[in-house]
């Protein structure tokens, strides 16, 4: 935050939250580091081109792998408690929070949001459910390939809509 008050500061009775809370982006990386889906989730999401996203996806994939190697504490078999490969679970910055859910098959669901956004973990798990429903049961989806299932993207949009407007998780 920028310290900008040179004048006498008014007594802060009620300060608005420092950041607008909201989801920014969802991206999904397959087990070899290829980006299989990216989707802006809110109006505040920065505009990033698909090529950039491909780069971010594979960079994140590498960092995730390095993080698991670099950690001084090795979990048994380098697996976390959920049975997935160990690695980055969360990155926090001033204006961004990034959370990663890696599944046992090596798919990484990564969600970025503004700090303070509630329910990121729950949304990630829900997106995992939607992926296994809408993409994996679709005869026209090929594993490890980009997700082009209309049903999946619609479901993700309506999930985010529900969480933002309703404030409650349905399940």
């Amino acid at each position: 935050m920028v310290a900008a008050s040179f004048h006498s500061p008014p007594p802060p009775t009620h300060r608005p939250p420092p950041f607008e809370m909201g989801f920014l982006h969802l991206f999904i990386v397959n087990k070899s580091g290829g980006l299989i889906l990216h989707r802006p989730l809110g109006p505040t999401a920065p505009k990033i081109s698909t090529n950039e996203w491909l780069r971010i996806g594979s960079t994140f994939h590498s960092l995730h792998a390095i993080a698991a190697e670099a950690t001084p504490v090795k979990l048994p078999g380098n697996k976390n408690s959920a049975g997935a490969d160990d690695g980055i679970e969360q990155i926090e910055g001033r204006g961004i929070i990034l959370k990663c859910l890696q599944t046992r098959t090596g798919i990484k669901f990564v969600l970025t949001a503004e700090p303070g956004t509630p329910g990121i973990d729950a949304v990630l798990r829900e997106i995992y459910v939607l992926y296994s429903d809408c993409a994996l049961k679709d005869p026209f989806y090929e594993l490890e390939m980009p997700i082009r299932c209309e049903l999946f993207t619609n479901a993700v949009d309506s999930l985010i809509d529900q969480v933002v407007n309703g404030g409650v998780m349905m399940r």
Binding site: D133, C134, K137, D138, P139, F140, Y141, R148, C149, E150, L151, F152
Partner: peptide
């Protein structure tokens, strides 16, 4: 066809 999304290149296919 509960979980089927028809890709655009398959057009009129009914699942």
């Amino acid at each position: 066809s509960t979980f089927v999304s028809i890709p655009p290149d398959l057009g009129q296919l009914s699942a």
